[in-house]
Each structure stands twice: as structure tokens, then as C-alpha cells.
Amino acid sequence: MKILVAEDDHETAQFVANGLRELGHVVDATGDGREAFMMAGSEPYDVLVLDRMLPRMDGLAIIRGLRSMETMTPALFLTALDGVSDRVDGLEAGGDDYLVKPFAFSELAARVMALGRRPRQTANAQTELAAGGLKMDLLARTVTRDGKPITLQPQEFRLLEFLLNNAGQIVTRTMLLEGVWGFHFDPATSIVETHISRLRSKLDDGFDQSAIRTVRGAGYIIDG
């Protein structure tokens, strides 16, 4: 993927850019807001990684500007602000995801991948999701694995739907907390692990291979 990283803290910018290059992406980096806006407006990037506070033009203004020019490149905000309203402001301006500093690189990488693969606003929402032998009918709310029907609780269904939507990509614990349960904090109780384990035992019953793979130190993945 071609990724633009706009971050004025040199060390963070290097850390992010080098990490993404190691994963095989093409990365342009800049520390200046206006330059980032010009680059994002003229070159076809797959994902933008924008710091909220940039010299000359801040992240929110860049996104507003791009969206008004119909440039819909998915954007991830990086920020040191974890205010209740900061996240809302970022998403309202047209950002697609939000990551609070300091963050683990694996978290950033997983989110960038998820954004890059996101289907571009398909008008007709999908009614069926499928990956690795799993099939999910979103209208009938049924799930099968290799044709065998599996009964799921509503929250287990939501969890599997999120994983299937991101099939082939690592999904982190934080992404699940935000995407499935709407938690923007880390609860003391291990709710993600428990739900994954319950979902797994239902999906894997009678199968040799686990449908959901754990990627140590990173998250979970359903291979596509």
C-alpha cells in the first residue's frame, strides 16, 4: 500500500514510517501540515496517518479540506489527546479511525491494514460474509462452517461479523473493544478473551483447525 505519514515529532515519524516500510508498504513522510494536505490532495494514497497537531495546518483541517474536495482516502488520526470530545471531533471532521499516543506499533499496523482494505463505501451493503469455510448470512443471521450450522449468541455474532469483515487481517484487542462493544477504554475484566474463547469453542466443535487464529502479542485473525 502507499501510505502518507504526517507527524511532526521526528522520532515517532521515523518509528512509524520505518515500521510500515518493513511490512512492505511505500511510505511518504512529512512533518508539515500544509505539505501533507498538498501531497494527500495530489497523490493517490491508500491510507493517511495524520497527527492531530501539525504545524501550519492541523490534522482536522487537512481532513476537512480533503473531504470537501471529494478525496475520500481513509485517514487514521494520531493524537496525544484522549479527550471525550477529541475522538468525536476527529470522526466528525471525516477521520476514519483514531489512535491515542503512545501506541504499540502492532496496533497501528493492524488499523492501517484494516483501513486500507476497507471496501470503498459500497452502496449496497453486503448481505453475506465468507472466509476460511465460514459463511455468515447477515439477513437471516445464520452462520455455517463448511455447511454445518452454528448457533451464536448476539454478541458472539457481532464479534464474528467484525472478524469476517476484516478477514485476512490481524484484528487487535482494542479494535474489538471499540468495534464490537463500543468500549473506548480497557476494562479490568478480560471480556475480549472470554468472548473469543466461547466463540471459538462453538466454531471449532468437530473441526481439527481453529477458525480464529491468535497472533501472539498482536491480536486475532480469520485467514481468508
Binding site: 470530545s85 478480560s190 472470554t194
Partner: peptide, 23 residues
């Protein structure tokens, strides 16, 4: 300024289902 009207019953029911297995 961010306040909205929402269904607290639904939120707590969902929260209970979220926590029930882990608890």
C-alpha cells in the same frame, strides 16, 4: 454539548451480556 438521549436499559442489558461470560 455531547449529551444525547439514549436507552440506558438497552445499554445495561448489552453490558450484562458483555460481562456475563468473563464473570
Amino acid at each position: 454539548k455531547h449529551f444525547v438521549r439514549f436507552d440506558l436499559s438497552a445499554m445495561l442489558m448489552d453490558l450484562a451480556e458483555t460481562y456475563r461470560p468473563a464473570i
